[in-house]
Amino acid sequence: PPDDERKKAEKAARSGNEEKAREILERLGYSEDEARELAKRLR
């Protein structure tokens, strides 16, 4: 489910793995720019 994926992205971002967070968010349908912004904010 998307919620689980989003949680994974948050966890990745918090542990400093912004790249992985961005990949997950892009898979969820965010654009590259949106995903980058979100990954930064989740950190």
Rank of each mutant, 00 (worst) to 15 (best):
D33H: 08
P2M: 14
R14D: 05
R41E: 12
K7C: 14
Y30F: 12
K20T: 10
R14P: 04
E26I: 15
A39L: 09
L42P: 02
L25W: 06
K11P: 03
E34F: 06
R43T: 13
E34H: 04
K40Q: 10
K8P: 05
G16S: 05
A39V: 14
D3S: 13
E26N: 04
E34M: 08
N17L: 09
E34P: 00
K20A: 14
S31G: 08
A39Q: 01
S15C: 11
K40M: 07
G16Y: 04
E19S: 11
R41F: 06
E19G: 08
S15M: 15
R41Q: 13
P1Y: 15
K11R: 15
E32V: 06
A39P: 00
D3A: 11
K8S: 10
R6P: 05
D33W: 04
R27G: 12
A21K: 01
E10R: 12
E23R: 13
L28G: 01
G29D: 02
E23D: 08
E26L: 12
D4W: 13
S31L: 02
R14H: 09
L28N: 02
E26A: 05
E32W: 00
R36M: 09
L42V: 06
K8A: 14
E32N: 02
E5Q: 10
S15Y: 03
S31F: 01
R36A: 10
R43F: 15
E37A: 07
A12L: 12
D33P: 07
G29F: 00
P1W: 14
E32R: 02
D4L: 13
E10V: 13
Y30N: 01
S31Y: 00
A21W: 09
K20P: 04
A13W: 03
K8L: 14
A35V: 04
K11M: 14
E37T: 03
A12K: 04
L28Y: 02
E5R: 09
K11N: 12
D4G: 10
G29S: 01
I24Q: 02
A12M: 11
L42A: 07
R6V: 15
E5N: 09
A39Y: 01
E37F: 03
A39T: 03
L25G: 01
D3C: 15
A21D: 04
D3L: 13
G16Q: 05
K8G: 07
K11S: 12
P2L: 13
A13K: 02
R36V: 07
P1A: 14
K20I: 11
A9V: 06
K7P: 05
E5T: 10
